[in-house]
Each structure stands twice: as C-alpha cells, then as structure tokens.
Design a protein around this nucleic acid. Structure first.
Length: 483
RNA sequence: GGCCUUAUCGUCUAUCGGUUAGGACAUUGCCUUUUCAAGGCAAGAAGCCGGGUUCGACUCCCGGUAAGGUCACCA
C-alpha cells in the first residue's frame, strides 16, 4: 500500500528534453499541478535527460516557456532549485549509482553479459514460437561481475500476478508475463527511466504520480523495484489517453500533436487552452464548461478523472477560445487587438474603442484577426478604398436609378447631422425611419456598399459612426458619382 | 502473438439500479435594423453485441467484439 497518509501532497511533472511540449504532456502537467495547488502541496518540475541520444538542445528552455505561458508554476525545479536539487537527472548520477550498487551487492540485480545482437536473436526465437520474449528465460546462471560497463538488470525472483490500486482507475492487475528482468543502469552509466524516476520520486517525497496510461503496462516492474528497494510506493493516478481528431490513435507528435506554443501563435488564449485540456479526461460532474482556474481548482477531484480516451476536438477549443475572448477584460482585449492591427494600420485610441466590439464578434482567435488584417478585410474601417468597383460588379444589370436617388437623400440628411450626433444610437434614430419609408433594401444596401465597398459588412449605421461624418460624406458622394 | 486498458448522440461528456437517458461542440431550420458576423429559439442525433444477477439494468458480473496501449541499453 502507498505510504501517503497525513503527508503533504507532492506531485511532479517530469518531461524529457527531446523536443517541444505537445498538448498531451501539458495536460499531464496540468493535472499534477492542479492537484498539488488544490491541496496546498508542492509541485516539482524535473528534467529526465537520461537518454543523451534523443536529447534536443534548447528543449528545457522550451518546456519552461510553454509551462509558464499556460500558467503552470512550480515550487521546485531546475531553474529555481529547491531542497532536493538538482532537478536534472544527468546531474544526479551519483545517487542512482549508489542505489544500483546497493541492489547489486544484495544480489537483487546482476550484470547483463549479452550483446545487442544476442538479445535480438533471443527475441526472434520467441517471436517464432509466438510467445512473449522474457529476458528472465535467458537469465545467465553465472553473470559476470558488474563493473559499470554492462547493463545492470533487476532480478525478478518470483514472477507472479500483481494487483494494485490506481486512484483514477481503481483496481488494476497484470499477469507474470508483465514482469521481467529490466535494465536499471545502461552501459553508458546512465540510469533508465524505469529506475531513475523511482529514485527521484523517493528523494523528492513525491506522493502522487500523475501519468499517461501507457505506463500501466510497466507498473509491475515499478512495483518489483519498490519492493527490492524496500520502499513504499506513491499513489498512481493514471490519465486516459488523448486521441488524435482523425484516427483513434493516441495523439503523439507524429500524428500532428502540436507544440503548445503553436497555439499561442494561433492566437489561442492560455486560459482557454488550459480549460480545454483539463476537460479532456476530466469534468466537474455538472454542466459547467467554461471555468476559471479558481473554479477548476475547487472542483478538481481525482475520482472524476475519466477512464476512456478522448479525442482532441479543435472545434471545441476554438469555441472555448471565443468564450474567453468575450470574457477578456477590456484593457487586455484592447492590447491583443491593437498589437495585431498595428502591423498594418495606425489607429487612434478612440477609433480602437469604437471598432473593438465588431472585431471581437467576428473572430474566434486572434490569429484570425491577423489573417483579416493581412487580407485587408478591415480596410474599410481605416482607409477609404474605392468601393465603387465592387458595387458595379455586384449588380451589373441592375437599375441604379433608385439607389442613386436614395443615396442623394441620405447624403443630404447626413450633412445636416452634427458631429456630436454622429453616434450609432443617434444615427439609427435619425436615419432608420427614412430607411423604413424608402424601403430598407433599396437604401441600406447601397449605403452599405458605398461605405464599405463590400457586399458584406457590419451594419451601415455602425459604419457611419466608425468612419465619421467627413469620410462618410466623401464615400457616399463617390458612390453617387459613379452610379 | 502475450499481457494490459477502454467502450453513452458525429465529438466531449452527465447518469454512481428505477430519468421522456441531461448538457456542450458540430450540423440543420427559424427569428432579429433584409448582407456578413454575433445573438435568440428550435430540431435531428447515443447506451457495441450476447448471456446472466435483479421486481427492474446504460449502470453490477461473465463471454464475445472492436479500438487503444505495451512488450527498447526511449521516456
């Protein structure tokens, strides 16, 4: 049984620096972090860099940047240290060696004399016989003395069926086939993940291990190691897999799992991604979907963690992002929008205030805004384009007599409206009765096209209020001249 | 192939033996200062199959089936 009674909760996130952070990893980090925070516990960031071949330079910085962006912080970690530093496995080799030596001295581990070629041969033999390959079937009777240059394997003395409890899954078990003499120390002097993470979790006092469900299969090995070391295990909390949107396979880098920072570039808000990710494999049990971090933390319970896998549904993420955009405080919204508009336009603070509501209801992500800016979709707000071209194309064969007449009428009316009355409310109040009188269709569309140069645009009264009296008159006059 | 895990609308899910099986995304239709967007309203849409247990199973048990994971000197 785990030894977690009355202990301060300690969880960790332990990525390996092999590239960018994808959403699956972040989701695991999120769960561990949420649980620690909720319980006033400690959350540790630890770097598992025991595979020097797969290591990608710059990964650690990237991991830290990704976690910080989404809002995860840690109490102990490689960048800030802590009571059990260092938090990078390659800097803890002495510790692993000490424990490895101890296991070896006790006769619980032994040196592996086989070459990779020999092992491959054994594997093929098993494959031919259609049975699972087990190293222990080939265990050397008189293994050589371990000098650190051979792999060190744990000796499974008594293969048997093991049953254990998982806080999220309940009772799990595996047959003796799942238990084999696995490698603790590699011939390059580095520990394997299987060995190192257990030693580190022990040292760092980790009470709850949040992990993805591919680790269920190797749990019997961990259990054997805990026993060999004579230590109580932490609690296991196994998360369901995240499946790719297209197939049914686990979402991995190869299946298009994106770099979390890619979502940042797409203009997804970190709070939205956090909310979305937490909801893959967890929900509060009621109808709430858009939840603040505080609410999520309050509602977070391990027993509400899902057992079945969930697909990564980007549509829902986009929807959620829109919900978050709507809820964004005014100053933040203004900053996000003006940052992107300023790439092409210079607009006054006042203009910005007027156009933000329309922009906000037209975008789901800030990345879309960037696209619109690039394609000139908002030009009519800022720069007077030549609207007439599109107008003519739009109704080539139409009779323009009535639109022209109506535009003249509206032009005269607008000339009489004072600058101070050039607001959406006032303009609507003054012009709408006329539009009703003349027929909405025969006034509103010519006006819209004259003002925006497009068939599709926001409400023409709104456009008037945005571009102002002078520019409105100019645009309408231009349209009349061409008709 | 062995071992393991999982299984409710297209998707994410609620239900912890008794419900007209609820919500959200997506879809479709309707409404609104005749467009676009947003918003409002509405509709269609689900318990993998077969056995048990029980007065009663989506829910518990068993067996299939399907999907996924894992069997590395990767993590």
């Amino acid at each position: 049984m785990p030894d977690t009674a009355n202990k301060k909760i300690v969880t960790r996130f332990a990525p390996s620096p092999t590239g960018f952070m994808h959403v699956g990893s972040v989701r695991t980090a999120l769960f561990a972090w949420l649980f620690a925070k909720k319980n006033n516990g400690t959350f540790i960031l630890r770097i598992e860099d025991t595979d020097k071949e797969r290591e990608v330079e710059g990964s650690i910085e990237h991991i830290i940047k990704s976690l910080k962006w989404i809002g995860v912080d840690w109490d102990e970690g490689p960048d800030i240290g802590g009571p059990n530093a260092p938090y990078v496995q390659s800097q803890r080799l002495d510790t692993y060696k000490k424990y490895a030596q101890e296991l070896y001295n006790k006769g619980l581990a032994y040196a592996d004399p086989y070459s990779k070629e020999e092992l491959d041969k054994f594997r093929k033999e098993s494959e031919k016989k259609k049975i699972a390959f087990l190293y222990r079937d080939y265990r050397p009777e008189n293994p050589p003395k371990w000098d650190g240059t051979q792999p060190l394997r744990l000796k499974i003395s008594e293969p048997k069926r093991l049953t254990w409890n998982d806080l999220a899954r309940g009772e799990l078990s595996a047959g003796p086939e799942a238990l084999d003499d696995f490698i603790l120390m590699k011939s390059d002097g580095f520990p394997t993940y299987n060995f190192a993470h257990i030693i580190d979790d022990l040292y760092m006092g980790v009470t709850h291990i949040f992990r993805a469900d591919e680790f269920i299969s190797s749990t019997p090995k961990f259990l054997a190691l805990y026993e060999a070391l004579g230590i109580k295990r932490p609690e296991f909390v196994t998360l369901p897999p995240i499946l790719g949107a297209e197939g049914k396979k686990k979402l991995g880098k190869r299946d298009g799992a994106k770099d979390v920072l890619g979502y940042k570039d797409d203009g997804i808000l970190p709070q939205a991604l956090l909310n979305f990710l937490v909801f893959i494999g967890w929900n509060p049990g009621d109808d709430r979907e858009v939840m603040s971090l505080k609410e999520i933390m309050q509602a977070f319970e391990i027993n509400k963690i899902q057992t079945g896998g969930g697909k990564f549904n980007e549509d829902k993420l986009i929807w959620l992002n829109k919900e978050y955009i709507k809820r964004l405080p005014d100053d933040q919204l203004k900053k996000e929008i003006s940052d992107r508009l300023s790439k092409k336009y210079t607009c006054s603070d006042e203009l910005l205030d007027r156009i933000i509501p329309t922009i906000t209801e037209r975008i789901n992500t800030f990345g879309e805004l960037e696209k619109y800016v690039k394609e000139g979709e908002f030009d009519y707000f800022f720069i007077p384009p030549t609207p007439l071209k599109e107008m003519i194309i739009w109704k080539k064969d139409a009779d323009f007599e009535i639109p022209k007449k109506n535009l003249n009428i509206i032009l005269e009316m607008i000339e009489k409206i004072s600058e101070t009355d050039f607001t959406l409310d006032k303009l609507s109040a003054i012009l709408m009765p006329k539009a009703n009188e003349l027929g909405k269709g025969s006034l509103l569309w010519p006006l819209r096209v004259a003002l925006s140069g497009r068939e599709k645009s926001p409400d023409p009264f709104y456009l008037l209020s945005v571009i102002g009296k002078e520019e409105s008159l100019t645009r309408i006059q231009k349209a009349i001249n061409v008709l």
